[in-house]
Amino acid sequence: MNQALGILMILCLHLAPTAVSAEDKGKETVGRIKATLYIGTDGDVSLLGGKVTEVDAATVKHLGGIEKMQFKHYRKLGDDTKAVFRSYENWLTPLKPSEEILLSFESRGRSAEGGLRLDLELWQHRRKVMKSDPILQKGRPLLILGPKWRGGTIIIAVELIELTPSK
């Protein structure tokens, strides 16, 4: 019995370092980002349907203060928050389960100013329509004025929610 335990212990000691070294550092989470889809319209809000939700006053004020994004009404269509991996691509699906608007992203490392540099692609109807490499800072979203729908214009807000402290 003691001999068997001894063999088991030796096996564990040999296998443990192998398991640790097999971990993929690329899957480490370096932060989290959120995509929110709004629609801005000067027309009849009822055309947007009953499922759209109200937007809080702070967001309305923020969006309304930006040139090209000034509309009489704003409504929210959906949002999604995803982890940013060290070296793996990930996807935001703010209209889930619809895949009409998708965002793919991948970390390009931290910026000198404490932000997160990303490769970001916008997909509409499974077709890539834009590619950029913005630096996202907390509290400073990237706003994309996108396609039109039911008389309004889609606004895609991409923001950095969390940036994991560097080790």
Binding site: K68, H125, R140, L143, L145
Partner: peptide
């Protein structure tokens, strides 16, 4: 904010 305005996209 940083703002990107895309024009010429197909309407949904």
């Amino acid at each position: 904010a940083t703002v990107i305005v895309l024009e010429g996209l197909d309407d949904i």
